[in-house]
Design a protein around this nucleic acid. Structure first.
Lengths: 125, 125
DNA sequence: AAACTGTATATAATGCAGATATACAGTTGT
DNA sequence: ACAACTGTATATCTGCATTATATACAGTTT
């Protein structure tokens, strides 16, 4: 498992770790129930405090991507990705509702909004 | 003009002043070109530093709600619909950014998101 | 001139985020 | 049992951004 820390990225270290592991879980590079490097081993590897790797793992667990067995290790959670997906879908729908309301109060056409969304999705790609 | 400062609201004082004046302008309680209380008078009234009221007025001016004549006073700006439109566009873009981020973390395709948006816009029509 | 208006600069207080060390407790393999 | 590994809990340090401030300044009004 490779993690790259970009010191001049501006993003916190724990967040860079979080994102990269999360992405590897989502795209399948990390398999269900696969053991992750221990917080200490990873910290040593990256030459940072293990408290920082712990922070990243805490966030991953909070968001359902991994599970932890104290004194044993941290593991990729079974793909209850469906649950995460449902949560995200709900959040997305809320954002869309807000957009729909804002659209009306500033006389923007539906097509214009669609174009903005297409552009925004490409930006963040 | 009434302003209430809630000390345990968590919101900064300047922000509470900003919001309340802005709302009164939007809902018409304050008329175009009406003179606002001077930053010192308001500060004395609220028993805070006039620097804080100045901060609130600065934000209001930056966002186009009021205009300032140095050494004379601060006045309600004429309602600018174009400005409100710009603000709404910015909010919409923020929502789109959030959506783009959520999309990635649940492996949703860009086209699926666009379909959701189309549907959501029709719902709110 | 007195009393008001907003302005500019410098500074103090606060809070929060990020990263950390150290001491602790459970599991594994020998 | 012991060494070497897991994750946990607490307390702290640092840097930075936000909030709020005082004081000195400059223009307008009466």
């Amino acid at each position: 498992m490779y993690i790259f820390i970009d010191n001049k990225s501006g993003a916190p270290i724990y967040d860079q770790i979080y994102s990269q592991i999360r992405d590897q879980i989502i795209n399948g590079a990390l398999q269900e129930h696969e053991m992750l490097p221990s917080i200490r081993a990873l910290a040593k590897d990256l030459r940072i405090s293990f408290i920082t790797t712990k922070r990243a793992y805490e966030e991953l667990e909070k968001d359902g991507y991994i599970y932890t067995l104290p004194a044993k290790g941290c593991y990729v959670a079974p793909k209850n990705l469906e649950r995460i997906r449902e949560e995200n879908l709900k959040k997305i729908e809320e954002h869309i509702e807000n957009i729909a309301r804002l659209r009306k109060t500033c006389g923007l056409s539906e097509d214009e909004v669609i174009e903005m969304v297409k552009f925004g999705l490409e930006e963040e790609r």
